[in-house]
Amino acid sequence: MADNPITGAVVMDPVPRIEGHLGIELSFTGSYTTGTSGTCNNVNAKGEMYRGFENILKGHHPTDALHITQRI
């Protein structure tokens, strides 16, 4: 990325080596070029996978939670 100016948003998705789906999004004001100053004004981390364990558990027998919540 040495000479490439980065403007607007930078997205890194997926982030490897963690369990789960993670993406990182940075947004910049103006432009940023390596070696010069730039301002990052916002960073968002986003989980990109939904399974809905709370909803799954509704109505199940409490002992089922033993099996289900192990897999969070």
Binding site: Y50, R51, G52, N55, K58
Partner: peptide, 22 residues
């Protein structure tokens, strides 16, 4: 598997409610 497990409260008739559509 687990993500396809249903919420049993949803619909006693169909018994199926896949929130995430797994």
């Amino acid at each position: 598997g687990i993500p396809a497990a249903v919420n049993r409260n949803y619909d006693a008739v169909s018994g199926r409610y896949k929130y995430n559509g797994a």
